[in-house]
């Protein structure tokens, strides 16, 4: 199952756990699974439409997910939620 790294600010929602193995074949599905186990986490990551909130990026296996919540993830994927990167 994909391994999700919980943002430090949200670890109070996961009883202090910093990593979780969560089922799902897309970023959105993984977030849905997280929400089931740890209510309240989805609204911190997603807007009302289920898209990643502005300013939040999913990073899958070290690369920013170009498709955001729709990005497919492999069973051995490593997922992080980080601030969006914008350059000059």
């Amino acid at each position: 199952m994909p391994r999700v790294f919980i943002p430090t600010n949200l670890r109070s929602l996961t009883q202090g756990l910093d990593q979780l193995e969560v089922g799902g074949s897309s970023v959105r599905a993984v977030i849905d699974q997280l929400e089931s186990a740890h209510p309240g986490i989805r609204e911190k990551l997603c807007d009302a439409q289920g898209n990643l909130r502005p300013g939040v990026s999913a990073v899958v296996n070290g690369s920013v997910a170009a498709l955001g919540a729709l990005q497919r993830v492999a069973p051995d994927a490593e997922i992080h939620f980080l601030p969006t990167i914008g350059g000059g």
Partner: peptide, 21 residues
Amino acid sequence: FASPSSGDSGPTNVAKQYLFE
């Protein structure tokens, strides 16, 4: 994006908090 337990502290100039460990 302060920790969920921090609550509403009222008007502030601090727009956002980031934390990594």
